[in-house]
Write a protein that binds this DNA or RNA. Sequence first.
RNA 1: GCGGCGUUGGUGAAGUGGUUAACACGCUGGUUUGUGGCACCAGUAUGCAUGAGUUCGAUCCUCAUACGCCGCC
Length: 379
Amino acid sequence: MPKIKYTLEKKEKDTKARLGKLKTNYGTFDTPMFMPVGTKATVKGVSPEELKEAHSGIVLANTYHLWLRPGEDLIAKAGGLHKFMNYDGPILTDSGGFQVFSLAKNKDKDIVEEGVHFKSHLDGSSLFLTPELSIEIQNKLDSDIAMSFDECPPYPVSYDYMKESVDRTLRWAKRGKEVHNNPNQALFGIVQGGEFQDLREYSCKETVKMDFDGYSIGGTSVGESKPVMYKMIEDGVRYLPEDKVRYLMGVGDPIDIIEGVIRGIDIFDCVLPTRIARHGQAFTRQGKITLKNAKFKEDFTPLEEGCDCYACKHYTKAYIRHLILADEMFGGRLLSIHNIRFLTRLTEDLRQAIKEDKLLEYRENFLKEYQGEKEKISR
RNA sequence: GCGGCGUUGGUGAAGUGGUUAACACGCUGGUUUGUGGCACCAGUAUGCAUGAGUUCGAUCCUCAUACGCCGCC
C-alpha cells in the first residue's frame, strides 16, 4: 500500500502546468491545490467542516509549534493529529525548518552540522532541533505527509554560504529519511539553492537521487523580488520527476499561485488568506480589499458577487466591516472562510484552464481584472 | 446677584513666555507569502473658548465677555 499516490492526468499545452490527483489514506484531492495553514493543529478560526465547505483538499500543521505545545506524545496519545483535531482529510506537517528562519530575528539561533540551537518563542528556553528529531516528531504526529528538515536561508546570502547550506540540507534530508519509520506517512524532500541556478539544479538532482515521495521548492518568499522568485521556481522544478507531486512552500498570493502553476507546481500553502482576514482584508476578483476602508461603510453587498462561500452567501461587506472595526472575532472567521474559498476556487479555475489548454489566456484575464488599472507586475 | 474654579484636535488629555503643541484612543491610508505576535508602518490641532492689552515674542501673564461646574445670598 503506497502512502500517497500521485497521478499525472494532463499537461497543459503552452506551459509546464500539470493536472493531477493526489491520493492519501485520508482522501484524494485534485491538483493544483491550495493548502490552508493550520499551524497549531487548527486553521485559525475555521472549523474542519468549514474547511471542507470551502473545498480545501489538505491542510498544513507545524512540527515546531506542536512539539512545543502540546507535545507530540500527547497528540500520539490522542490517536494522532487527525483524531486530535477532528479533521479526517489529508494533513501535511512542516518540519520546523522555516521557523528557524523566521525566528532568526531574535539572533538566538545557531546552525551547526548536527542541527539548530535556538530559543523557544514561548518561554525563551533553549531548544535543539535536528533532522532526526523533526522526523520522529512528525512520525508521532501521524500526518499524511512529512517534510524533510531543511535550512531556509534568508535573502540575500552569498554564493559560498548558499552552497554550504544546500549541502547541509542534503545531508539533513538523508539523515531524516534514514530515521523515518511511519508506514502511513509520505516524506518529501526540499529543493533549496536560493537564486543561484546551478545550486538549484544541484540541490534538485541530489534530492531526487534520494527518492522521496514528493518534492517541494523551499527558500522562496523570503524577501526576494517576484521575478527572482519565479526564476527560483523554474530552476527548482526543472529536474524534478514528472510522476511525483510538487509543492511550493509558503506561496502565495493569487498571482504567485497562477505563476507557480504555470511553472509546474501542484500544491501551495500560505498564511496570507487567514492572516489578512484577521487584519480585515479579503481577496476578490477585483483585487484585495480592506474592509476597514470607509467606502464599505454602507456597502450591503457580499464580499464578492457570485461567491459560493458561507460568508458571501449570508453576510454583507458593511456587516463584516462592522465586526472588524468592533474587534469581533466572527469578522475574522468570515473573512478567513472567504479567502480560503477564494484560493481553492482559483485552483479549481486553473485546473479547468489546464483541461482546456487555456492557462495563459486565463492568466491574462485574471490579471486584467485583479490588478485593474494598476501596473502589471514587473517581470 | 456675589465669589471660587475651569474652558487645548473627533475623544481622554499633557504642556511651555520663544524653531515642528507630548502621549493615548479614534479616524484615514498602507503592509503582510513553509503564522510567536487580531501585528506592523504612515498620516491625522497653521492652532490651545472669544475680544483686547503687556511683551521683541503669548496657548502659557493681565483685563473684559461667553459658556460650564461648585458655593453663598
